[in-house]
Design a protein around this nucleic acid. Sequence first.
DNA 1: GCTTGACTTCGAGCGCACTCCAAGGCGAAT
DNA 2: ATTCGCCTTGGAGTGCGCTCGAAGTCAAGC
Lengths: 124, 124
Amino acid sequence: MTSLSIAEAAEQTGLTAHTLRYYERDGLLLHSVERASSGHRRYTDDDLRWIEMVTRLRSTGMPIRDVRRYAALVREGDGNEAERLALLLAHREVVERQLAEVTSHLRAIDYKIALYEGKLTPAE
Amino acid sequence: MTSLSIAEAAEQTGLTAHTLRYYERDGLLLHSVERASSGHRRYTDDDLRWIEMVTRLRSTGMPIRDVRRYAALVREGDGNEAERLALLLAHREVVERQLAEVTSHLRAIDYKIALYEGKLTPAE
DNA sequence: GCTTGACTTCGAGCGCACTCCAAGGCGAAT
DNA sequence: ATTCGCCTTGGAGTGCGCTCGAAGTCAAGC
């Protein structure tokens, strides 16, 4: 349960093993992943939970470098919650603006689609 | 009115002059942009309208190569409306899935934000 | 006639986020 | 003991979408 190989962690998180190693190297995780005596990585539930958070940030378009900054803040421990909050709030604003933009562009595309559909299924 | 320099077209479309040239080179426009006797590009209203459509597709995440395909279909003229429609419908599905995903991730981030806000503004 | 500034082309360069490869290690199974 | 499969590292490579630079042209203004 509480200790997965990199392949299992990849499966669980939807990332590739390559990406998991890359994230670790690049400072997106809170600390180096533990190793078995063989040298193989062993992911804990906590690791997976954090990686899930990273995935949420990434999937909403947060750049790697900002995720790294956020990870650094969390790693530092108590005392910088205001800074973490600021980072998340700033990100939320970006995402919301982007959602609004995409939605509005999508409506315009839908209009175009309706035109083509009208052409293909002529009114009786 | 109906004939803009590349700088003016850039201003109007929100793209850079570099990007406008790049799009043209890359086959995203319906035809080569007309030239003044000086060799400078002159953008017509039709050009701008098409570029706006391209911008909508790009802003919703359609890859350059698919925009190029769509442009090719439109360029071909009447007779392939079904194919154009299929392309747009497929794109709409992708965008909608992505919107749903981002929205759901955003909700999770909002929850995290609420936690930090709770920490910072302790309940009375 | 010279300068200025906006344009031209061609091709190289860049930033991002992976993605992959080569060479090797470890442990279990045959 | 050798094969197999999964893992390791360091570093190179990839794909995308621009973005930029160098060198040159042209028209207008002084």
